[in-house]
Amino acid sequence: MSGDNRFLGLFYLSPFIIGLLVFTALPFLASLYLSFTNYNLMNEPVFTGLQNYIRLFTNDRTFRKSLWVTLIYVFTTVPLKLVFALFMAVILNYKLKFINVFRTAYYVPSILGGSIAIAVLWRYIFADVGLVNMGLTMLGFEPVNWFGDPTNALFTITLLRLWQFGSAMVIFLAALQSIDKTLYEAASIDGAGKWTSFVYITLPLITPVIFFNLIMQMVQAFQEFNGPYIITQGGPLKSTYLLPIYIYDEAFKRFDMGYASAIAWVLFLIIMALTLIAFWSSRHWVYYAGDKRS
């Protein structure tokens, strides 16, 4: 590479690199430092060692409750969303009339789903006198207390996330379309039915994509904020009080930035640990092209 062009690539990349350093790397490291301090925004941070972490694990019922709710939320939404997205992708992989219209229509909620407007809409749809209860009443069922009952509130929030299955679905769809059709023909000649073909051909061949979606969806689910914050504000009885809401409240409502940073780091480590477990387990169930395993 000539001297003139040596730094050209770096120059083109510099907006991204600068953005990454200033808006991601620096706050990331700053939050680690702040997690060991008492910092209320108005005064300089005061180093307090492990005090925030000790308080978190020994004297904070809200954290324990919030962590439990977050884990339930993640372990419910991620598998359900993956199964549903794959199910829809399989259906939309058939050659049907107007299939592109259907594909677009099913993808739309993913674009809108995370928005404030949809969260507000959700609040009205599932309100005591909302559309869902009106429908249930018309069908002869008792109306359900979706937001007021702690056992239902998390489920209602979960539904909002499931509704945004489009992005995972599109990735599954692309994977399904890349499978060599001759494999299905060969299986069919050998007498395999559709279900057998799906289990023994489709699923193994798309395991890399399942793995990718699993990681992405898990990370996103751990960071869910908009839906529960707008719809239930974490209630009732903190039944939808996910850790990101707790972090936000500690940081911007109670101005305990040090403590909020400590919670954020615990959340980060949990995500990191689960991701590493997923990577470790992937050796046993994810198959790549050229894989020698039988």
Partner: peptide
């Protein structure tokens, strides 16, 4: 309180 929450805390 439960009934108010059912209305979405509007």
């Amino acid at each position: 309180w439960k009934q108010v929450a059912a209305g979405g805390n509007t």
